[in-house]
């Protein structure tokens, strides 16, 4: 450290602000931890943070995106604090990394600043501009805390990702997924559920009927495909391990009769399958017009009762198949 010291807070307000405006965003964010006054000053600068991503893993990470620069705060936890039963745990230390386009620019290890996990999340989410996009990823095998008991810790999340460990389903995982969805689904626009077991009172049907822009699911249990026609999602991606050809055909027919008016894109991917999909079953009764037909790639167009056109694209490989319905106008 240099020996020179500077009584920064003795500067007149206009100069104080001028120095902060000149500073790098990375340094302003670190300055915001110095005191309440510093935090309040950093907030008034309305930093152009476009998105904040919160990764609720064993060592939670909060990543701020400012233009092409990302600033990540990884909270290093004690190993006996895993799984995380509370947001009131104190990190041991915090690793701050400033990254540019595909490279690391700066790295710093700082103390926990006397702040709990919840306080770190709250602090870093609250210095952003109002238009910031907030995203959180929850890994239920690692997170065991009741998110709903911390209503003011998280901002309104627009993007939620929940992942459960594969294999045996634990009641804890169901409860955590349930808590996260109950807390954030009303404000969410983009939801991804990866192997998430759902409780009886919150089915995929409930989630599909929320006004989501994007929903991506790979359900651990069999999805009732016929429910899809009541979903209200704009862009839906479903990963399955069984090919629902008849159900998809029924869904396309219902779409042609006017169901799912908000739908712009539906993608159904089937993995680990050696069965070649029979397009005759999929397209039966649709009056689909072939755009091109090759062995591994086919494209058809269909039209609904409102004369809105959609294309159905089918791509197959040795062990996977991909069906995409794209609404054209």
């Amino acid at each position: 450290m240099t020996g020179h010291r500077f009584p920064f807070h003795h500067l007149p307000d206009d100069l104080y602000s001028k120095v902060l405006e000149i500073m790098d965003h990375y340094d302003i964010i670190l300055y915001s931890f110095v005191s309440k006054k510093a935090y309040s000053m950093a907030k008034t600068l309305r930093l152009p943070i476009s998105s904040v991503k919160i990764l609720m893993t064993a060592n939670p990470e909060i990543i701020l995106q400012i233009g092409v620069t990302s600033i990540s705060f990884r909270l290093i936890m004690r190993t006996d604090r895993i799984p995380m039963a509370s947001l009131d745990y104190l990190p041991v230390r915090v690793r701050v990394v400033k990254g540019g386009v595909q490279r690391e620019i700066a790295q710093l290890i700082i103390s926990n600043q006397g702040m709990t996990i919840g306080e770190w999340i709250k602090h870093l989410c609250s210095i952003s501009d109002k238009d910031t996009l907030y995203e959180a990823r929850f890994y239920t095998g690692i997170i065991k805390c009741d998110i709903q008991s911390h209503p003011n810790t998280f901002p309104k999340l627009r993007i939620i990702y929940i992942s459960c460990p594969r294999g045996a389903i634990h009641e804890d995982d169901i409860l955590t997924a349930h808590n996260v969805l109950r807390a954030f689904l009303p404000d969410a626009q983009n939801v991804t559920l990866h192997d998430v077991p759902l409780p009886k009172d919150l089915s995929f049907q409930h989630i599909g009927m929320a006004n989501l822009k994007v929903l991506k699911i790979d359900p651990p249990s069999i999805l009732v495909f016929d429910d899809l026609s009541t979903w209200n999602v704009e862009n839906c991606t479903i990963h399955l391990n069984q090919m629902p050809l008849r159900e998809l055909n029924r869904f396309f027919k219902l779409w042609m009769k006017g169901s799912n008016p908000r739908l712009k894109k539906l993608r159904v991917s089937v993995w680990d399958t050696e069965i070649i999909p029979d397009c005759n079953v999929l397209l039966k009764g649709l009056k689909a017009k072939a755009e091109y037909v090759y062995e591994e790639s086919k494209k058809y167009t269909i039209k609904n009762c409102r004369r809105i056109r959609a294309e159905i694209k089918i791509d197959t490989s040795d062990d996977s198949a991909d069906f995409v319905l794209t609404v054209l106008n």
């Binding site: 450290m1 010291r5 500077f6 009584p7 807070h9 340094d27 931890f33 110095v34 006054k37 700066a106």
Partner: peptide, 13 residues
């Protein structure tokens, strides 16, 4: 590139 503690000391906050 300084930590919050260093900033506090340098800027006498």
């Amino acid at each position: 590139g300084k930590s919050p503690e260093e900033i506090r000391e340098i800027w006498m906050i």
